[in-house]
Amino acid sequence: MSVSFRTRAVARVRPGPVRAGKRGTRSPGTAGYIFLIPWFAGFALFTLGPMVFSLYLSFTNYTLLSAPQWVGLANYRRMFTSDPRYIHSLEVTVQYVVVSVPLKLAVALAVALVLNRRRRGSGLYRSLFYIPSLLGTSVSVALVWRAIFGEGGTLDSTLKVAGVHTSNIWTEDPRWALWTLVLLVVWQFGAPMVIFLAGLKQISQHLYDAAAVDGANWWRRFVSITVPMLSPVIFFNLMLELVGAFQAFTPAYIISGGLGGPADSTLFYTLYMYIMGFQNFEFGYASAMAWVLLAIVGACTALMFRFARSWVFYADDGDRR
């Protein structure tokens, strides 16, 4: 699901028209389609097929052990009328998205701005800052996080050395657990940072020079030049992170031991979906949840694109504004 979103976001956001088929104007790519057959076959078999099947399942009761039974809209009704844990999981996820996405982008942009200045070793720093993102969604990082913030964790021992005795188990307290996950994802700011860096390099130095001549200070140049010129890249990163954050799963799964605890404080949408499907064997209900998530993410994306017209600035089609 995330893949298709990504490609679409890239296609829509990329500035300038895509120049294709400039030379060969014969049949527009029969050969191309032939070469694409393996990909299409894989897509149909492993993405489209299962998706259509899951849409069907969402209208059924299906336990994996016996054939699906048609129940109409019952699964969808149950979600919004008689499943408080579902509503709660939605709230937890929205909270996570609203906090983690802007925070992560802010950190990524700040680090990119620092690294953008030409100085010795900036390439090395760039790589170092990117490392957490390479480890990214892996299970091992979540395990490390658990070791830091969990029972008898490193954070607690470190604070103890500093004379602060909290004996807090951060991951086992509903006031903190979600924020340790936010911290984890913010720490993995490498991917948007690299994209920001590439965007920053595209901004013409002339603009800054001209502004400096006019007496604009650093903040003024940032607000009036960097942000508008970078806005397509900001938008692109925003879309990617938004879609990704809605689908966050691994860290919550690992750190809460697959239960979304304590007190359901890390019960992400996808985690609850997983619990319903693979622990409770309610695959019909889980499928319905998946489709509602798709609708929610789709609606958010559409809204963002709509809203984007007012703040995203494309230098190459400036005449539209």
């Binding site: 099947f53 899951s54 399942l57 994996l64 889980a286």
Partner: peptide
């Protein structure tokens, strides 16, 4: 997701 498991 369920369907993937099934096909597999």
């Amino acid at each position: 997701m369920a369907a993937v498991v099934l096909t597999m």
